[in-house]
Amino acid sequence: MSSQVAAYWYVFLKGVGITLWISWLALILGGAVGLVIGLLRIAPWAAVRWAAIVYIEVFRSVPPLVLFFGCFYGLSYAMKLDLSPFSAATIALTLTASALMAEVVRAGIESVTRGQWEAALSQGMTYPQVFRYVVWPQAIRVMLPPSVGVYISTLKDSSLASIIGYVELTKSGLLVRESTGISFEVLLIIAILYFVINYSISLVGAALERRFKYVH
């Protein structure tokens, strides 16, 4: 690494922190929204199910980059909202992540067989009790490994926030590139940093998956 680029190590470090933070935030928010949508997706009423399907299909069909623009420019014009790049990026990432999470939630809950529902209900448990004590503990095991995948995907999508001027890891790198005029090396450093972060997360995910397999 040339010393010219190395002098900016703290900028890269800060970028890594911000990238981890915004993607984590989007994962939590997307998880919460995804949980609701995922539950609606398996609701007993066709109209609600279809609404959830439309939500999921729309937000996995529209490119995150287009969503970033829609939130940053579209919303601020249409609703006269005072959206910072941070809020616009968080909303866009949450929408994308929630569509992915909804499918994860659905798969998790559907992995618990009908028979268990019926057995628990016939034991006199209420619907929320069945959900809380029978279905959820099993579903979350099925849901955890793919959630790690959603986190990695969200983390990668967060690089698009650089386009609307949010200074995360990619944008930090582009700024260093502008200051030093060194393209290849700086971009390579960003790529390596993303790889290290995401690969570590995927290793944690694989470990989780193994652990939950043993419990089964």
Binding site: V36, L39, L40, A43, P44, W45, V48, M79, K80, L81, L121, T126, Y127, P128
Partner: peptide, 26 residues
Amino acid sequence: MKTMRRSVLGALAFGVLSASLGWSPA
């Protein structure tokens, strides 16, 4: 049991709906 289940989901649906309707700072 079934009504309970419906009401839980109904409440969730209502929450989403009202959140989306109430959100008009224009």
